[in-house]
Design a protein around this nucleic acid. Structure first.
Length: 517
RNA sequence: GGCAGGGUGGAGCAGUCUGGUAGCUCGCCGGGCUCAUAACCCGGAGGUCGCGGGUUCAAAUCCCGCCCCUGCAACCA
């Protein structure tokens, strides 16, 4: 199949441990990846870790170990975090791997050979915390505002420069065109505005420390960590190592990033690719930031909360659903424990979980847990047709939302069907039908419709709540695995086989007390 | 200073491009149902759509001015 879909998250800098911000990016990318798989795309979902640079070297030195040893110690924390959130990445790249380092050198050498890199010197104030040079007016009291505890270093060093400035016009043309996009719109405007103010060439090597990938023709320099990091997107795709694979999946469909690193992804990165005539990303999507509010956790900063702090209470599904649904995708959002409890109870426990509970219970009580014969067209009345119609609309709405890369809107669309199924229960009142023997076939029909609705709800929600969705399929007596399901076949109304054996089970999403914990 | 985005019932958002009944979720109030996780369903209250002016038969929606908030200004998701 040629319908490749390649999506990436940033690779995370390992002097940090995973926190809610990282988890947010990861969950959003995973939602999109899972949805695209259900649509039949051949998905490549890449994440990883960024392991070079002075900060890592210093952290390792402080522990008395080599940088690579330090990295090997930290990286499992990231694997664990993503496992706890059921992140279904297809590849996890580390920038210290040979499959990355060698192609990076190939790429940089090629830039050099083409005259895109020249030797210059840079004199200025350098903040190790930022791994960046600072202009004097950025400093507050002689300190970097982002890293006030660190000393600013005055350095003059010889650096290699990438001719970024010459790409300003082409970048403007690129992001003004409709072929490629920076999303949401506000971010595109931001990038265009800045690029129009002009670009400087970019210092792309460092000479003051050694922890990095050497410049191939001048090994006393290492490649600037951001250049190194950005290249992960193509090295993992097979650049300079697996041409067939690279041609198949590149250019990337979506780079999902936080808005703080938009500049690198929408300016520096495409310019680097242009310099070697490599196709640029189709879409760079910069999501918003999470802010921490509410009483319970307000004293924590975002970076002080690990994903696992929340999955203990809300589960992986609850975590994933909350952030996808609560934060309007693309905008900043506020996280609070209170809103998380409210959202969990309202949408997952009351709407979704309770629907499953009441339907499975009735199927067991009234039909002995056996899914009845699939209703024929002439057995369906108006209410039934409205239910089926609601499913079609929800599904259509989700696909449209995904075209706009909005998990939030996709889930809103899915929930219109969940709510419709609940109101259908009231409308057809199976408990009343069960009291009248002459209505037995009608009872079978409505319970079939409801069980089938559950099956489809599980399918639609799988990208957000994979565990509960799979469990629901199991309780409906379906053998299949949702991660191998496809909308094209499984998304068609009427797919639940007659005779399947349903089981009620415990609450899919147990209600939480408002003052839980 | 500049560039960009926003200010809509208690909270969070949609609607503004393509003027004409202000929509959704949560919360609140009332009712219903009893299959269900004190859940579910139905109904209701609650908004001078930041302020002032203008265009128009008609403005949340278009134009002008002002106030407030936020983001960007090159490297923490």
């Amino acid at each position: 199949m040629a319908n490749s879909f390649y999506i990436t998250t940033p690779i995370y800098y390992i002097n940090d441990v995973p926190h809610l911000g990282h988890g947010y990016t990861e969950v959003a990318a995973d939602f999109i990846a899972r949805f695209k798989r259900l649509q039949g795309f051949d998905v490549t979902f890449l994440t990883g870790t960024d392991e070079h640079g002075q900060k890592i070297a210093q952290a390792a030195e402080a522990k008395g170990v080599k940088p690579k040893e330090w990295a090997d110690e930290i990286v499992p924390r990231w694997h664990e975090a993503w496992k706890a959130l059921d992140i279904s990445y297809d590849d996890f790249i580390r920038t210290t791997e040979a499959r990355h380092e060698k192609p990076v050198q190939t790429f940089v050498q090629e830039l050099y050979d083409r005259g895109e890199i020249y030797l210059g010197s840079y004199e200025g104030l350098y903040c190790v915390g930022c791994e960046a040079f600072k202009s004097p007016d950025e400093l507050i009291d002689g300190k970097c505002p982002l890293h006030p505890t660190r000393e600013i270093e005055h350095v003059k060093e010889e650096n290699y420069f990438f001719r970024l400035s010459k790409y300003a016009e082409r970048l403007i043309d690129l992001w003004e065109s409709d072929e490629r996009s920076v999303m949401p719109e506000v971010r595109r405007n931001e990038v265009l505005g800045k690029v129009r103010q002009g670009l400087d060439d970019l210092s792309m090597s460092r000479i003051s420390f050694e922890w990095g990938i050497p410049i191939p023709w001048d090994s006393k320099h290492v490649i600037y960590v951001w250049i190194d990091a950005l290249l992960n997107y193509i090295t993992a795709a097979g650049y300079a190592s697996d041409e067939a694979r690279f041609n198949r999946i590149w250019p990337v469909d979506v780079h999902l990033i936080g808005k703080d690193i938009l500049w690198f992804h929408s300016v520096i990165w495409p310019a680097m690719l242009m310099a070697l005539d490599v196709p640029v990303p189709k879409t760079v999507y910069a999501h918003g930031f999470l802010l921490v509010g509410g009483a319970k956790m307000s004293k924590s900063s975002l970076t002080g909360i690990s994903p696992q702090d929340l999955t203990e209470t809300f589960g992986s599904d609850g975590y994933r659903y909350y952030f996808l649904r609560e934060v309007s995708f693309g905008q900043d959002g506020t996280f609070s424990w209170e809103s998380m409890v409210a959202r969990y109870n309202s949408d997952l426990a009351n709407d979704y979980g309770n629907l499953a509970s009441r339907v499975l219970n009735m199927a067991g009580r009234y039909l002995g847990g056996a899914v009845p014969r699939t209703p024929a067209d002439d057995e369906l009345d108006e209410a039934d047709r409205r239910l089926i119609d609601a499913y079609d609309q929800a599904f259509t709405g989700m696909e449209a939302a995904l075209d706009g890369l909005s998990p939030t809107e996709a889930l809103k669309a899915a929930w219109t069907f969940v709510r419709k199924a609940n109101s259908y229960v009231e409308e057809v009142a199976p408990w009343a039908l069960a009291k009248d023997e002459s209505q037995h076939r009608r009872l079978e029909v409505v319970l079939y419709n409801l069980a089938e609705s559950l099956r489809l709800i599980a399918l639609l929600t799988f990208p957000a709540t994979p565990r509960a969705s799979q469990e629901l399929w199991r309780r409906l007596g379906i053998d299949g695995e949702l991660d191998r399901a496809a909308f094209a076949t499984d998304g068609v109304w009427g797919g639940l086989p007659a005779g399947s054996k349903t089981t009620k089970g415990d609450a899919l999403f147990p209600r939480l007390d408002d003052d839980q914990k």
